[in-house]
Amino acid sequence: MFPPFACCSDGDHGRDSMRRHQERKLRMLRFWRDGVERQLAAVTAAISTLEQQMQRDESAASN
């Protein structure tokens, strides 16, 4: 009448379900990591640009 729940299924089917869950979790974590890496690259570039501007302004002020 009702489909079997994951906790009540046979061993092989449960392992397959666990494996699919782990693969989905891995894809999600990689997606999050990629987003964080993009944000870090943007912050690093902004810091570098600001440092260059500050150095340029320092050298212009000393002339």
Rank of each mutant, 00 (worst) to 15 (best):
M18P: 00
C8S: 15
K25M: 08
L29T: 01
D16A: 15
M54D: 04
S48V: 04
F5Y: 07
D10Q: 02
E58N: 11
E37W: 11
H13E: 13
L26G: 00
F2C: 03
V36Q: 03
V43P: 01
D34P: 00
M54Q: 05
Q55K: 13
A6Y: 08
W32E: 11
N63Q: 03
C8I: 12
D57G: 00
A6Q: 06
A61D: 12
R15Y: 03
A6G: 06
K25R: 11
H21E: 07
L29M: 03
D34G: 02
S48K: 12
C7P: 07
V36Y: 06
R20D: 14
L50Y: 10
M54A: 11
P3I: 11
A61H: 11
R24H: 11
D57V: 00
R27V: 05
P4N: 14
L40P: 02
D10M: 01
G11H: 09
A60D: 02
E37I: 11
Q53A: 08
A42Y: 06
M28C: 09
F5K: 14
D16I: 12
G11K: 15
D57T: 03
I47M: 14
T49Y: 12
A45M: 14
R56D: 04
Q52R: 14
S59P: 02
Q22K: 09
G35H: 04
S9Y: 05
Q53D: 04
T49I: 04
K25D: 06
S48Y: 05
L29G: 00
F2H: 06
Q53H: 05
M54C: 07
R19A: 13
F2D: 05
R33L: 09
V36H: 02
L29F: 01
L29I: 01
C7D: 14
Q53Y: 04
H21N: 10
D16K: 15
I47K: 11
A42N: 08
D16M: 15
R24C: 08
M54H: 07
K25H: 11
H13A: 14
P3D: 14
R24M: 10
P3S: 12
A6F: 07
S9H: 07
D12R: 15
Q52S: 13
